[in-house]
Simulated assay, not measured.
Amino acid sequence: MCLIGLHKWKRSGGLNIYASNVREKYFVCTRCGKQKTTYEPKKD
């Protein structure tokens, strides 16, 4: 499934504060081990 882009993402670790108003989330695919990082605005 991962070969056609259908990864099964699972949260990996906690949050890192990248900047004062941005939050970093780490994910890892439970099938192939690929990692991704997403950035989202921090909600006050």
Rank of each mutant, 00 (worst) to 15 (best):
M1D: 12
M1V: 06
M1T: 07
M1F: 07
C2N: 02
C2F: 12
C2L: 06
L3S: 06
L3C: 04
I4T: 00
G5D: 04
G5S: 05
G5Y: 02
G5A: 05
L6P: 00
L6R: 04
L6G: 01
L6D: 10
H7I: 02
H7G: 02
H7S: 04
K8G: 00
K8W: 05
K8R: 13
K8Q: 11
K8I: 05
W9D: 00
K10D: 07
K10W: 11
K10C: 12
R11K: 15
R11C: 06
R11F: 04
R11T: 09
S12Y: 03
S12Q: 08
S12P: 00
S12D: 11
S12E: 10
S12A: 13
S12K: 12
S12H: 06
G13K: 10
G13E: 09
G13M: 04
G13Q: 09
G14L: 05
G14P: 06
G14N: 07
G14K: 14
L15N: 10
L15H: 13
N16R: 09
N16A: 08
N16P: 00
N16V: 15
N16W: 03
I17E: 15
I17M: 15
I17L: 15
I17W: 13
Y18M: 11
Y18W: 10
Y18K: 15
A19R: 15
A19E: 15
A19S: 15
A19N: 15
S20L: 06
S20A: 15
S20M: 08
N21A: 09
N21M: 09
V22C: 09
V22G: 00
R23A: 07
R23G: 01
R23S: 10
E24Y: 03
E24W: 07
E24N: 03
K25T: 11
K25Y: 08
Y26S: 01
Y26T: 02
Y26R: 05
F27T: 01
F27H: 04
F27M: 01
V28F: 04
V28K: 13
V28W: 01
V28H: 06
V28L: 07
C29A: 12
C29W: 04
C29I: 09
C29L: 03
T30L: 12
T30H: 13
R31Y: 09
R31D: 15
R31G: 02
R31T: 14
R31L: 11
R31W: 12
C32R: 11
C32S: 05
G33T: 13
G33H: 14
K34P: 00
K34Q: 10
K34C: 13
K34G: 03
K34Y: 07
Q35P: 00
K36V: 08
K36C: 03
K36F: 01
K36L: 02
T37C: 05
T37Q: 01
T37N: 04
T37I: 14
T38P: 00
T38H: 07
T38V: 11
T38C: 01
Y39R: 12
E40T: 09
E40H: 14
E40S: 14
P41L: 12
P41V: 05
P41G: 08
P41C: 03
K42F: 12
K42D: 02
K42S: 05
K42V: 11
K42G: 02
K43I: 10
K43M: 02
K43S: 10
K43C: 02
D44G: 03
D44E: 13
D44S: 13
D44N: 12
